[in-house]
Design a protein around this nucleic acid. Structure first.
Length: 346
DNA sequence: TAGTATT
């Protein structure tokens, strides 16, 4: 279902009188900006500082992957004054930062209907320009972005591209209308389908990410551990650290409560927005997780900065701890350890 | 036949 944003009740059209939008409600459409094509390594602080140079910021957010904490390359800025939002578009849109040219525009009202509206197109004639591709697709709706991928050396089209529509239903109609069709004068039909959704990161992506960051840290001796065919080999291949048996486990709890038997792990420095799904996704790739719990403030319902995870197998729990302790999730560095009996007392 | 736009 569609959410109506800023509109009046359904029925006879209301006149655009001065009463509309003047009863204290914020008109986000004039102050809220979306910023795209940010350099991958830009931090929240740098983002805030760049857009704060224009005027007072009500709020801003660099959007990051929930699990890996990596920047997703876009963000939102909400100015106090609509004039500053306008100024930010005029002065910062098109700014070149490193290899990127950032795009600054008004954010559309958030709605489920605008999500998952990005299409992947292949089999395009190599001679087709971006503009021609847009003309082909524009009959199905409003195009937000389009891109044709080119060979990095020759600059020649690779025959594949992306089209983002304003609405998902527009994208669906474009698939129905254009998938398998030959553009005018083309020899081959094109393929049109929904683009892979990057937000559906898997545990594999987390492990790859951990492996890459630890490979940089430890630079070297990893490859020799490959292809040891223990059940844990999938994990072991990606782990930077060998686990040395069961030494030093005094005071560490092997729990057997209602949450199920297993090894209880203490996770510290979670963000106030953290939820159970983050813990499942962080620890799941390492093995059997039977329970996760985010500790929240009773009144605000925000995470108090820590949580617990119960894992069935010692080896997998130890591997998760070795890999995730010290892991940087956005601006935060996680502390991960077996829960001690001390922490349990109160 | 793959870049990254909805908090």
């Amino acid at each position: 279902m569609e959410s109506q944003v800023g509109g009046g009740p359904a029925g006879p059209a209301l006149p655009n009188g001065p009463l509309l939008g003047t009863n204290g409600a914020t008109d986000d459409s004039k102050t809220n900006l979306i910023v795209n094509y940010l350099p991958q390594n830009m931090t929240q602080d740098e983002f805030k500082s760049l857009f704060g140079s224009i005027g007072d910021i009500e709020s801003c957010k660099l959007v990051r992957d929930k699990i890996t904490g990596q920047s997703l390359g876009y963000g939102f800025v909400n100015y106090s004054d609509p004039n500053d939002a306008d100024k930010a578009i005029n002065t910062l849109n098109g700014l070149k930062l490193q290899t990127k040219t950032i795009k600054v525009s008004y954010a559309r009202p958030s709605s489920a209907s605008i999500r998952d509206a990005n299409l992947y197109v292949s089999g395009l004639p190599k001679t087709m320009s971006q503009k021609e591709m847009e003309q082909l697709f524009s009959q199905y709706g409003r195009i937000i972005t389009s891109r044709i991928l080119v060979d990095q050396v020759t600059g020649v089209s690779r025959g594949v591209g992306f089209i983002r529509f304003d609405k998902r239903i527009e994208a669906e109609e474009a698939i129905k209308g254009l998938n398998g069709q030959k553009p005018l004068g083309a020899a081959e039909p094109i393929t049109v389908k929904f683009a892979n959704n990057p937000s559906q990161k898997t545990g594999q992506a987390l492990l790859t990410h951990l492996y890459q960051s630890s490979a940089r840290r430890y630079a070297g001796p990893l490859h020799h551990q490959t292809q040891r065919f223990r059940p844990l080999s999938l994990i072991a291949r990606f782990s930077p650290i060998a686990i040395d048996g069961m030494s030093g486990l005094a005071g560490v709890g092997l729990s057997g409560g209602a949450a199920g038997a297993g090894w209880c792990i203490f996770v510290y420095n979670l963000s106030p927005e953290a939820d159970e799904s983050v813990l499942w996704q962080l620890f799941g790739p390492f093995g059997a997780v039977t329970n996760v719990k985010v500790i929240r403030d009773f009144t605000t319902n925000k995470c108090k900065g820590f949580g617990f995870v119960t894992m069935t197998n010692y080896d997998e729990a130890a591997m998760a701890i070795a890999s995730l302790n010290g892991y940087r999730l956005g601006e935060r560095v996680l502390q991960v350890s077996f829960k001690t009996s001390k922490q349990h007392k109160a």
